[in-house]
Amino acid sequence: MSDHSMDDIKSHVKVYMLVFASLAVLTVVTVAASYMDLSSGEAIFLALIIATIKGSLVASYFMHLISEKALITWILMITFVFFFILMFIPTIAFFDWVNIS
């Protein structure tokens, strides 16, 4: 990306450090949360929320998705549609099964 000036990069570096700190804190939070007395549904929800936040931070700042071209965003959005199809349709099908016995 040739459109970055030196100062841009320097301000980027600050952001990277901030992201790094938040990732470390969130890691500790998610581990701490797992020792709390939560129902399994709550625990799964919380852990996935934290993981999603961490994942978005990495994708947005380290992978520069936040300033990436529209085409890349489109490809990823399509991918996530298919990803969720792959995750959820087998799951829904799992619960919708004829009990022959």
């Binding site: 298919f82 199809i85 349709i89 099908a93 919708d96 099964w97 004829v98 022959i100």
Partner: peptide, 15 residues
């Protein structure tokens, strides 16, 4: 991408 289970109708899939 969302038609695949028509290969699996006789696996006991619900209605």
């Amino acid at each position: 991408f969302i038609v695949w289970a028509h290969h699996m109708f006789i696996t006991g899939m619900g209605s």
